[in-house]
Design a binder for these strands. Structure first.
Lengths: 320, 320
DNA sequence: GTGAAAGCGCTAACAA
DNA sequence: TTGTTAGCGCTTTCAC
C-alpha cells in the first residue's frame, strides 16, 4: 500500500487521519493507491496502540427474537452510530454462563463499554471483576451484584395503572405469570400490583402466580391450568410480551373449541402487544418504550465514556 | 501478567493455548496469575498475527426492530455460537450508504465472513470490491450485483399458496402493498401472485399496487386509500409483516369508527403475523421461517470458511 | 520445557 | 513535510 503510493506507512496513516502535514500532492497519491487497492486500515491493529479506542460497544441481551429486545438494540445502535461506534451483539438466552462468556469475549476484544440486560438465571456474576475500568450500563432489569449505572422502565407506574384498571372493573381474582424470583422487572410489576390491590383490601392469591421468563409455550401451559381450575381468575396478567402471547395462544385454542370470547379472563400484558386492540378477546396492554430504553442506556454509557458523568452509579427511569 | 507468574509471555500464551510443552507446575502458576489479575488475552492483538482468524462474523440487517430480522439474527447467532464465533451487528435501515459504511467497518475489523440482508435502496454496491477473499452470504433478498451465495425464502411457493386461497374464495380485485421495485422478495411474491391469478384469467390491477418496504405508518396510509376508493378491493396483500401491521392499524381505526369487520377486505400477510388467528378481522398469514433462514445463512457461510463448499455462488431455498 | 527474537498493522514521538 | 524508531499484545520459529 505505502509502496504503491511511494511513501512510508506513516504518511498513509497521516493522510487517512485527515492529511495534517502532508503535501496535497502526496495526499492525492495516497488516496489514489487506497482506491486502487481497496485498502481498509486494520482497526484491530489501530486499537492496539495505547490511547486509541476500539470503537466497539458490547451489547448483551437475553433474546433477540423478542421484538422488545430487538427494538432495544435498535435504540442502542441509533446512539452508538451517531457516536461512530459499532456493536458487538450477543444473546444470553437467560443463561448466566452464556452471559459470562459473552462478556469475557467482549472485554477481550477491548470494547469501550457494555450494555447488558442481565440474564434471569440466578448466579453470582463473577465476571464483574474482569471489567476493570470498562463502564457498564445495566438495562431493563436490576442486577443486585452489579455496581453500575442502571436504566430501568417505570415498572411500578405501569403496574399501578394496570391495577387501577383492574380494580375499577371489579376484578378480585387475578392470576400472574412471570418470573418474580429472578427477573426484577417482573417482580417489581408483581409487587406494585400487590400493593395497589392491597390498598383496596384485596390480595394476590399465591396459587395464581406462576413463573416463566420468556417462553411462549410455557406461558400457554400455565394459562391452560388457570382456565381449567374450578374457580377461574377473572384476569390473567402477563409480566411481558412473550408471556402474553403464550396466554393468547391458549385462548386461540379455546376459541377453536367453541369457548366464547367473553367467557375468557381478561388478559393484561406488559411491554406492548401489537394489534392488541384488534383481538377478539379482551386484552389490555401496558406498554413500555424499548427503543427509548435502548437510547437512554446508550446515552448513559456515553456520558461515562465522555467523563460527563462521574461518581457513583446512577439510576435512570424511562417513562412508559 | 507474565511477570507475576515469573515466566515469559510465550509460556502464558502456550498455557492458554492448551498447555502443550509446559510443565504442569508452571501451568498452575500461570493459571493462578491469570485468575489473580483477571487477565483476558487481547483478541485484537491475537488476530493480528498472520494465519489467525478474528472470530468475528459481520451481520448487516435492515431493521432490528422488525421481529423477522431479530429472529433471523438469532438464527445466525445460534450457529455462530456453536462455531465459537461472535457477531458484529448493524442495521442499515434500507440505506445503501449505511450498508456500505457498515460493511467497510466490518471488513476493517477483519471479520471472517459477512451475512447481509441487502438494503432496498437501489444503488450500485461499490463495496463488493473491498471484500477481497472474505466470503459473504446474501440472505432473504436478491442482490443482482453481488456474486455471492444466496439463501432465500420460497417466496414463490408462499405466493402461490396465497393466490390459491384467494382464488378459491372468489377474490377478483386484490390490492398489493410492498416494494416491488427494489426488494426482490416483495417482487417475487407479487409476480408469482400475478402469474397464479393470470392462470385463472384474472390480473392484478396496477392501480392497486403501492410501494412500501417496512414502514408501518406508510402502509396504513395506503390501506386508507384502498378503503376509501369507490370500488374497494376484496383483499389487501401485505408483502411483509410490518406492512401487514400497518394495514391492520388502519383497520383498527375503521372499527373504532363503527365500520363492521366483515365489511373490510381480507388481509393476506407474508412472513408471519403473530396472533393472526385471534384478530377480529379476516386475516391470513403466509409464514416464512426467519430463524431457519438465519441458521441456513450461517451454515452456508461456514461451509465456505471451512472450504467444504467451493466453486461458484450457490442458491439455497429455505422452505416456508 | 522454556525463552529470545521477530513481526502482524498501526501511530506517537522524535529526527532529519 | 517526510521518514525512522519503537512498541501496543500476541504467537510462530528457532535456539537452548
Amino acid at each position: 500500500m505505502a509502496r504503491l503510493a511511494g511513501v512510508s506507512p506513516v504518511t498513509v496513516s497521516r493522510t487517512l487521519a485527515g492529511g495534517k502535514n502532508v503535501t496535497p500532492e502526496v495526499q492525492q497519491r495516497v488516496i489514489e493507491a487506497v482506491r486502487q487497492l481497496d485498502y481498509l486500515p486494520n482497526e484491530n491493529a489501530r486499537g492496539l496502540r495505547p490511547g486509541q479506542h476500539s470503537g466497539l460497544i458490547g451489547v448483551a441481551i437475553t433474546n433477540l427474537s423478542n421484538p422488545f429486545y430487538g427494538t432495544f438494540a435498535l435504540g442502542v445502535e441509533e446512539i452508538a452510530h451517531a457516536r461512530g461506534r459499532y456493536i458487538l451483539l450477543g444473546s444470553t438466552g437467560e443463561s448466566a454462563s452464556r452471559e459470562s462468556d459473552l462478556i469475557a469475549n467482549f472485554l477481550s476484544r477491548r470494547v469501550e463499554g457494555l450494555i447488558v440486560i442481565p440474564a434471569g438465571e440466578p448466579a453470582p456474576r463473577r465476571w464483574v471483576r474482569r471489567l476493570g475500568q470498562v463502564p457498564i450500563v445495566v438495562a431493563a432489569r436490576e442486577a443486585a451484584d452489579l455496581d453500575a449505572d442502571r436504566v430501568l422502565m417505570d415498572d411500578a407506574a405501569m403496574a399501578r395503572r394496570a391495577a387501577d384498571d383492574l380494580l375499577a372493573e371489579g376484578h378480585q381474582r387475578v392470576a400472574f405469570i412471570g418470573n418474580i424470583v429472578t427477573v426484577s422487572a417482573h417482580r417489581a410489576r408483581y409487587e406494585e400490583l400487590g400493593r395497589a390491590m392491597g390498598a383496596a383490601g384485596l390480595r394476590m392469591d399465591p396459587r395464581l402466580v406462576r413463573g416463566v421468563t420468556d417462553d411462549v409455550e410455557d406461558a400457554a401451559s400455565h394459562a391452560r391450568d388457570f382456565l381449567d381450575i374450578a374457580h377461574q381468575p377473572t384476569a390473567i396478567i402477563a409480566a411481558n410480551n412473550r408471556i402474553g402471547v403464550g396466554v393468547l395462544r391458549e385462548y386461540a385454542r379455546r376459541l377453536d373449541e367453541g369457548v366464547r370470547a367473553d367467557a375468557l379472563p381478561l388478559v393484561a400484558v406488559f411491554d406492548e402487544l401489537e394489534l392488541g386492540d384488534l383481538l377478539r378477546v379482551r386484552v389490555r396492554a401496558y406498554a413500555s418504550d424499548p427503543r427509548e430504553l435502548g437510547r437512554t442506556a446508550a446515552r448513559t454509557l456515553f456520558e461515562r465514556l465522555d467523563g460527563v458523568a462521574v461518581g457513583g452509579p446512577r439510576r435512570l427511569m424511562v417513562p412508559a
